[in-house]
Design a binder for these strands. Structure first.
Lengths: 182, 182
DNA sequence: AGGGTCATGTAAGGAGTTACATGATTGT
DNA sequence: ACAATCATGTAACTCCTTACATGACCCT
């Protein structure tokens, strides 16, 4: 059900096409949600069926036609109700990289260190990109009220990546300490 | 497919029943993977079908009968091969709480702050529990080679929760700064 | 000439969740 | 008396992923 509310949340800000919503997902939600475009398009059809969103068909000559979705009053109410519900306690993360890390005793140390180093570099790049994005979107730390959630979660994303990098450094040190006794 | 390797990884350490594997998941993998017992039992049946694990039935009088699974040579090979594959770049986290946070502009500030405070307390308790668990399992920071992965990922879990708490503090401050202009 | 962007979808299959089912023993 | 622990599963359902499909325009 969460995808439904993620889409309603984005539509509560601005009307958008499925294509745009897909990009917004990738841009601002990577650190806590993800969805394929196929899933987004199907969920949008359901939103419309249930009267939570409505669409208007727009004909274009220079590009394929598109459907612009907007949230309905009922959609806003449903979103509100969900937000006021008691959130469940479970975090429920799924990270395949950490799953691999949990099995590092089955790999040669050098290979494990290599994995960590690659991941560290990727996250360092992510930090760089996030900083630029935030600098662009919130100059001088200022943001619109409607961007509050995005501001807070992008702050989380940054912190998450920073602590990931620190953890990589720690883990590499730990691996190198043990190097030799395998 | 990842669940399959998670189970093979646990079985590579020790033979275990589905019931035990379910508990091991909850104890040591919460910060990067999760699975319901129903899924685990189904996957174990498949592992056996594919010759990656084998089971022996054990009759008990004081408790229900059980099936002890152990990894086969083929299972170890398949696990090895997966570990050596290039890990994919995508993190693919799903966190319903952060999804709610991303929509905080639709909630009264007081409610948003309350959510953050509750989450902060939960994570502080998690840190406490994790520290005790690590103190018990790795006295003086020492661990067995076979626990390397667990040692590294539990270190990650600790760091993750700590940075979560820090982020909550920051987010609460940000919310309180804006309080009044809604 | 080839790749990227815009734009929307269907179909098939795999992964994950929820409800149901059983039943003895142990602890509060 | 009631809840938790041990122990395993089926069935129905929803959610998510991957492959396939179309086609014009723009940039290098």
């Amino acid at each position: 059900m969460a995808l439904r509310y993620a889409l309603l949340g984005l539509l509560a800000k601005n009307e958008a096409t499925g294509y745009e919503l897909n990009h917004q997902f990738k841009e601002t939600m990577i650190y806590f949600w993800s969805a394929h475009h196929t899933q987004i398009y199907r969920e949008l059809l359901k939103l419309e069926e249930n009267g939570l969103a409505q669409s208007k068909h727009v004909h274009q000559t220079d590009a394929p036609d598109k459907k612009i979705y907007s949230i309905t009053e009922k959609g806003r109410e449903v979103l509100q109700a969900w937000l006021l519900e008691q959130p469940s306690v479970t975090p429920k993360l799924k990270d395949e990289f950490l799953l691999r890390v949990s099995l590092f005793q089955n790999l040669p140390t050098a290979k494990a260190v290599e994995y960590l180093q690659t991941s560290k570099e990727q996250h360092k790049q992510g930090i760089q990109m996030m900083k630029e994005w935030r600098g662009m979107n919130y100059p001088d730390g200022l943001y619109k009220k409607s961007d509050l959630g995005e501001y807070l979660t992008s702050g989380f994303g940054l912190k998450y990546m920073e602590s990931w990098v620190e953890w990589c450094d720690w883990a590499i040190t730990e691996l190198e300490k043990r190097n030799g006794d395998e």
